[in-house]
């Protein structure tokens, strides 16, 4: 029990640091809203290593903390919607056999973007952002794949940790 709490703290700290590192990387894909999603790496690892309940908690804590430190009221709402939808889809796919870490992560990346787009539609009360869907789908797929490849390598080396 004690080590579970300690690991939760370490995971939260890692996710927060990755959020920070991401703000330092000056990659601008030229498309608003598209970013690497480094912190999702920690969420994917947690999905495989922690209980689902704790992974949800980690995701929410991560979004709230990084939102208050680096973002604003809006970015918290978008990240929360994207993060929770993405984690739900990843957890459902993981229950079904046959998907690799990369596949799970791809679904996570795509649905993270979809969740944010849905909130954006509700906030600005327009559906004209729908034309933006293909861009976000492909972008989410590519970033999800990259995160998935790294997560796969990390999980191979983290076999001794099981929470």
């Amino acid at each position: 029990m004690r080590s579970r709490v300690a690991y939760f703290g370490v995971f939260t700290a890692l996710a927060l640091i990755f959020s920070y590192v991401e703000t330092l990387i000056p990659i601008n894909f030229g498309i608003p809203g598209v970013k690497l999603g480094l912190a999702n790496l920690i969420i994917v690892i947690a999905l495989y290593k922690m209980k689902l309940r704790e992974t949800y908690l980690l995701s929410v804590v991560r979004v709230l903390l990084s939102g208050f430190i680096f973002g604003n009221y809006f970015s918290i709402i978008y990240s929360l919607a994207g993060g929770i939808l993405s984690l739900t889809v990843m957890a459902l796919l993981k229950k079904r056999e046959g998907f690799s870490v990369m596949g799970i992560s791809i679904a996570g990346g795509v649905f993270h973007n979809i969740g944010q787009l849905v909130v954006a539609m509700l906030v600005v009360e327009t559906f004209s952002v729908a034309y933006y869907v293909p861009v976000l789908l492909i972008a989410g797929m590519i970033t999800g794949l990259m995160i998935g490849i790294v997560a796969n390598e990390m999980l191979k080396r983290l076999v001794n940790i099981q929470l």
Partner: peptide, 9 residues
């Protein structure tokens, strides 16, 4: 990548 991953893509 597994078969289902490719299907997802």
């Amino acid at each position: 990548l597994k078969k289902k991953d490719w299907m997802l893509i």
